[in-house]
Design a protein around this nucleic acid. Structure first.
Ligand code: FES
Ligand code: FES
Lengths: 130, 130
DNA sequence: ACTAAATGATACCAATCTGGTATCATTTAA
DNA sequence: TTAAATGATACCAGATTGGTATCATTTAGT
């Protein structure tokens, strides 16, 4: 099971590059040095912008900048942006249908673990990953 | 991302049933009440036996029993048995090739989180999930 | 005004992973 | 001898993920 998929990894590196640069960087400019296919990086950057992690400017000379300081962008933010929220536990019956949902011991335990992971992952910021 | 896949869920429930029963239970006997397709449960039970969590007896009247007390079978054991080891971090370059591997900050952080999860998951035992 | 460089939005394709099915061989109790 | 069980594999279908392709829109420079 992967927590850090390829796309998350790309996203972290791209954001680190933006943080270092200070100025805005285009998707093309980010993709080349990282060895990532341009279209893939564009999709990632679009997701990050939609999530409010970066701000984009369009048109010639445009690109991406961080929407807030690197110390306030967490790994959790990045994961959520490119992969959606964590769902460690996937109750076999679909949530609404499940009778045990309240009392299910496994679910409770796993939810607690998931919460801890979420905390850990939100504690690591982009500034730590430079 | 799922930590508890459907198969892990099935495995936990089947093992809980075996624990409650005390005597050996066949895959067929386990599958029916849980509403799991028999062949799927068989595959799972085979994996658990290969991992040494259950002991199987073949032939007529055979089935599965726990190989050790429920309190000493952890959720981590079960996950490892049916899904293989956790690999939160999937370095984009293949480990051996990667130059940064030693110093990569992301990898280090994620490895630490993975370790914590592993600890948590090994702390929960089958006895807790009855 | 025009063009080139950039993002936004989508739709699509291929590879991998997961859940589920099917078979055949082997063991064992009745 | 037969029926009930596991062991081992191979296979198939759906979901997820990584990657590609297009077209529309915005903007700076000429
Ligand atoms: S079975 Fe539905 S939550 Fe555990
Ligand atoms: S890039 Fe290889 S370990 Fe981080």
């Amino acid at each position: 099971m992967k927590l850090i998929t390829r796309e998350v990894d790309y996203a972290v590196r791209a954001l680190a590059a933006v943080a270092r640069a200070g100025r805005g960087l285009s998707a093309a400019g980010l993709a080349a040095p990282a060895g990532v296919p341009r279209p893939v990086l564009r999709k990632i950057m679009q997701a990050l912008s939609r999530a409010g992690i970066t701000r984009s400017s369009r048109g010639r000379g445009g690109g991406f900048v961080l929407a807030r300081p690197a110390g306030r962008i967490s790994l959790g933010d990045i994961i959520s942006a490119v992969r959606g929220p964590l769902k460690f536990n996937d109750c076999v019956f679909g949530g609404a249908l499940c009778h045990n949902h309240r009392t299910c011991l496994l679910r409770g335990r796993v939810a607690a673990i998931e919460k801890k992971v979420m905390e850990e992952v939100r504690r690591v910021t982009l500034a730590d990953l430079g």
